[in-house]
């Protein structure tokens, strides 16, 4: 029996795999088994009803996608009344993602969603689509510390701060979120990006700019997750380009205590459950009893390199484990 459970940001999770905000919803209940997830993370809600951005709202790019959905929202009241209760039929804890344009509205919203059935609040202080040109709270350490502190005072629930890869010094922002009282860091939201249709000379998104996600962002976000895990003592949840258990393992190895899977679910509807299965299979095949043992296990000692094929390639976990046994 392999133990996939982890404690993360004030919650005990059956496994470290959860959906990324905005890529998951009740509509998927018939598509994969919700009981298999480590936690649920809902689409970001805002205080009031919002229409969202003009279409086209998505565009594919090599190995990934751009989105400028713009957080259409039915408003907080409808969400608390209609959506939260429906998650009580499953065991995994519910994490509610919230966002607002001003600290006052943000704090009010945190109070509004601090209700029975909600296990933690993910604060989206990083959405590149909510404000002009992606100017989000998490762009700078000072505004991050202030907003997290403000929200810390507004709710007793665990607070997960979702950071933006568009910040200049993500590690400093991570530290600021921790100082402000966050219980975990989600690293990260999408990378502000754009693309143009050369035939029409129009931007491919109705909103001109949007967020890049999917496999294309993984090496960048992995680097940031590693930096944040070193800079902060609170748990880091890796999020960016994770499609397979291998991808998830990379994030766990650099120090993340859990991972979120987003875009991959659009291509493979059962991606979340496949990642859980893949983590279990990896542990079994490599003789790991607890996934905890993988977390932060990055080996920084200089590898003995034998270009003639002596050393096992570190990218092959089975051979790697054997070589390190």
């Amino acid at each position: 029996m392999i133990d996939l459970s982890v404690s993360c940001g004030g919650l005990a999770l059956a496994n470290p795999v959860m959906p990324a905000s905005g890529t998951f919803g009740l509509e998927q209940a018939g598509i994969f088994d919700f009981e298999r997830l480590g936690a649920f993370v809902t689409k970001t809600i805002t205080p009031d009803k919002r229409m969202g951005n003009p279409t086209p709202r998505v565009s594919e790019v090599p190995n990934g996608m751009l989105n400028s959905i713009g957080i259409p929202s039915k408003g907080a009241a409808a969400f608390v009344r209609d959506v939260i209760p429906r998650f009580s039929q499953w065991r995994p804890p519910l994490v509610v993602s919230i966002s607002a344009n001003t600290p006052d509205a943000f704090a009010d919203l945190a109070r509004t969603v601090s209700v029975e059935g909600v296990a933690a609040i993910e604060i989206n202080i990083s959405c590149p689509n909510l404000e002009d040109d992606g100017k989000a709270f998490a762009m700078r350490p000072e505004s991050t510390r202030e907003i997290v502190r403000r929200l810390r005072d507004a709710t007793a629930l665990p607070l997960w701060a979702k950071l933006t890869p568009n910040a200049g010094d993500v590690a400093a922002v991570a530290q600021a979120a921790q100082d402000g009282g966050a219980d975990a860091l989600v690293v990260a939201n999408t990378i502000l990006a754009m693309s143009v249709d050369v035939t029409t000379r129009r931007p491919s998104l109705g909103n001109v700019m949007g967020g890049l996600s999917g496999p294309a962002v993984k090496p960048i976000i992995l680097r940031m997750a590693y930096q944040c895990a070193r800079a902060a003592t609170i748990p880091v949840i890796g999020c960016g380009g994770i499609s397979t258990a291998r991808d998830a393992l990379e994030f766990l190895i650099v120090g993340c205590r859990a991972v979120q899977v987003g875009t991959a679910s659009f291509v493979h509807p059962s991606a979340l459950v496949d990642v859980v299965d893949g983590l279990e299979a990896h542990c079994r095949e490599t003789g790991i009893a607890r996934i905890e043992d993988v977390i932060g296990s990055l080996d920084l000692t200089q590898a003995e390199h034998d270009m003639m094929g002596g050393a096992a390639p570190a990218s092959d976990p089975a051979a790697y484990a054997e070589a390190h046994a």
Binding site: G22, T23, E27, K43, T55, P56, R57, N67, I69, P269
Partner: peptide, 16 residues
């Protein structure tokens, strides 16, 4: 018709 990503109602890209 509208461009789609998830196809199941969670991403809100396919609105009209």
């Amino acid at each position: 018709e509208q461009q789609m990503a998830c196809g199941v109602g969670v991403c809100f890209c396919c609105v009209r």
